[in-house]
Structures are given as structure tokens and as C-alpha cells.
């Protein structure tokens, strides 16, 4: 029983936070070893998706509500901060806050009708609402419709999140983002809400019998998940310097946000990070290496990878590590 005693919840959570800190240090030092600008950009994107997928995971993984409409919250964040900066000159540091609040609010509002639906009806409803807003945005002149908005560059500035060529500052911005969302997920896992959400995911009737209200639980998870996604949208907008409905609101983005969490391990702390670390580089590198030579091969590689991972590791990439940990525990036990 030594293994069991060591494997208690408290110990596990302590280990997780230590491992998280170690990974944070490693990622903070990583650019020192990577000189190539393209690779640095790739890492920035991976970090962004690690954060976004973790944000999605809060609702989809812990609370079990599979949303295919998260691009909506991403887009609201991106547009809010971009409009605030370009029209009113408001700093993205505030934009981040405003974008988070608005996208969290939007997720709450979307949840009000959608959480009355179950299973696949919920999935399709989130998808439809997302598509609807994307379509409206592409026809709304106030936000430049389908042309999109370019964020003009004036000077390097942290308050404007504007940097001429250096990707390095954004490495730390995205790292902070990914780390923050990870930390939120870690806190949720150990909190009353986190326990309630996982209960809601596993068995609604049993959750009710323990006094858990289902609907408010889902709404709370949605609001936090939406806000966290929206902040990612804000950071993306200022990183790229250009947004349009296609790149910030489209259904394909909703899928891209969810995918790393699923491939890595849905409802787990490390899954979204692992999934992003595998999927984003494969996707980007196959576009860079294969996409230009022969269009389509990059998609074939990416599609095949998704199929292979989903079939080989249906419980996610994290199960590689869990498997080993379990065996070890069994050896000691």
C-alpha cells in the first residue's frame, strides 16, 4: 500500500504544480536555444493553442459540454481589443480585460438556451451559433465586414503589445497566457466547482442526488472557458496585427481550438498542452514543407495524424504517461 499512500490526491497535486513550474522554466529558457525566427514563431503559436485548448477543456473536458463554437469567444476577444485600440486608442492591456469579460458574457448567454439541449443537439447548436455570428460579422460594415481590420504599427510598445520584428516578447506573452490558463485549470481541478463540473460530466442524475445544480454549473464553466478563450483571441489579434471573420470566427477555428485537448487527453491537466505540442508543429511544418510543393499533402498528413492518434490513443496522449505511472505504482504496491 506504499504506492497508494504516495499517490494521494494532495501529493499528486503537489507533483503537478512542481512539474508545471519546471515546464514553465524550460519554456521560458527555450528561445535562448532556438535562434531560427520561423521556429520561434511556431513555438509562439503552439503556446497560444496550448492556452486556447486548455480554455476549451474547462468546459468541454471538465464539464463535458462539447462546444464546437469556441471561435465565437476567440473572435469576440480579438475584435473587442482590436476595435478598442484602432478606434479609441485603448491599450490592449485593458482590451484583454474587456475582451475576456465580453467573451465570457457571450459564452454565458450562449449557454442560457444551449444548456437546455443534450448531447449532439448541444454540439450542433454551438456550431450553428458560431457560424451565424461569423456570417453576420462578414456582412457588418461597422467592423469592416469581410475585409477585416489591420492594426497599424506605430512604435514598439508593451502597452500596445506592438513589436516590430522580435517574436521574443510575444513568446513571453503567450507563455504567460498558456501558464495562466493552465493554472486556472489546476485550481479548478482542486476546487469545489471543479469537482461539481466533473460530476456533471460523469453522471447528471448522481450529481443531482448530491445537491449539485446542473444548469448553473454548466453556465459557470462556460463563462470561465469563454473568457479564457477570448483573452487568447486578444493576444492573437495583436500578435498577427490583422483580423477578419475568416481567421477569428470560422468553424474550422472552433475545431482547431478543441482538437489539441481531445488528442492530448480531454478533461486532463496536461492533455491540451501535449496535444498542442504535437498538432500545431505537425500542421505548421507540413504546410511549410509539403504545402507549397503539392497542395493538399499537408492536409492529408494532418488528417492522417488525427485519425491515427484518435485510434491509437483514444484516451489521449496523456495516457502514455499515465500508463507508465500506473505500472510503476503496481510494481511498488
Amino acid at each position: 500500500m506504499a504506492g497508494a499512500a504516495r499517490g494521494t490526491l494532495t501529493m499528486r497535486r503537489r507533483r503537478e504544480i512542481l512539474l508545471g513550474a519546471a515546464i514553465l522554466v524550460f519554456l521560458a529558457l527555450l528561445p535562448l536555444g532556438v535562434g531560427n525566427v520561423y521556429l520561434r514563431g511556431l513555438i509562439v503559436l503552439t503556446l497560444l493553442y496550448a492556452g486556447l485548448a486548455q480554455a476549451w477543456n474547462i468546459l468541454g473536458g471538465y464539464c463535458g459540454q462539447i462546444s464546437l463554437g469556441h471561435a465565437l469567444y476567440f473572435g469576440i476577444g480579438a475584435y473587442t481589443s482590436t476595435l478598442l485600440l484602432t478606434r479609441l486608442g485603448v491599450s490592449p492591456l485593458f482590451g484583454m480585460f474587456a475582451g475576456g469579460v465580453l467573451s465570457g458574457g457571450a459564452a454565458f448567454l450562449v449557454g442560457l438556451p444551449c444548456f437546455r439541449l443534450s448531447g449532439h443537439y448541444y454540439v450542433i447548436a454551438t456550431l450553428v451559433i458560431g457560424m451565424m455570428v461569423a456570417l453576420l460579422a462578414a456582412n457588418w460594415d461597422f467592423i469592416n465586414a469581410a475585409q477585416g481590420i489591420t492594426i497599424p504599427f506605430h512604435q514598439e510598445s508593451w502597452t500596445d503589445l506592438a513589436f516590430r520584428t522580435a517574436i521574443l516578447p510575444f513568446h513571453y506573452v503567450m507563455l504567460a497566457y498558456a501558464a495562466l490558463i493552465w493554472l486556472i485549470a489546476w485550481l479548478i481541478e482542486g476546487s469545489r466547482w471543479g469537482f461539481f463540473w466533473r460530476a456533471v460530466k460523469d453522471d447528471v442524475a448522481a450529481a443531482r442526488s448530491l445537491g449539485i445544480s446542473i444548469y448553473p454549473s454548466k453556465l459557470a464553466a462556460a463563462a470561465i472557458s469563454g473568457a479564457a478563450t477570448g483573452i487568447g483571441g486578444v493576444l492573437y489579434a495583436h500578435y498577427i496585427g490583422f483580423i477578419d471573420p475568416d481567421s477569428t470566427l470560422d468553424l474550422s477555428l472552433s475545431v482547431l481550438i478543441a482538437l489539441p485537448a481531445v488528442v492530448g487527453g480531454i478533461g486532463t491537466l496536461w492533455g491540451p498542452l501535449l496535444g498542442a505540442a504535437v498538432l500545431i508543429p505537425v500542421q505548421q511544418l507540413s504546410v511549410a514543407w509539403l504545402g507549397s510543393a503539392a497542395g493538399g499533402i499537408d492536409l492529408m498528413v494532418y488528417g492522417a495524424l488525427i485519425m491515427a492518434l484518435a485510434l491509437a490513443r483514444p484516451e489521449g496522449l496523456v495516457s502514455f504517461f499515465q500508463g507508465r505511472a500506473r505500472e510503476e505504482a503496481a510494481d511498488h504496491g
Binding site: T8, L9, G190, S191, R192, F195, F196, R198, A199, K201, D202, D203, A205, A206, A207, L210, G211, I212, G267
Partner: peptide
């Protein structure tokens, strides 16, 4: 009906959280 993604302790903690605020 058990919460299958959780351990025994976590299952029971869900119930305990009806009154407990802190983990």
C-alpha cells in the same frame, strides 16, 4: 452510478462539497 473519471476519494469528496467549501 459512479463518477467514473474520478477516484473513490474524489467521488466521495463531491458529496462532501455539499457542506465543505474548501477542498
Amino acid at each position: 452510478r459512479s463518477f467514473d473519471s474520478m477516484t473513490v476519494l474524489e467521488n466521495v469528496m463531491v458529496g462532501a462539497f455539499l457542506h465543505a467549501r474548501r477542498s
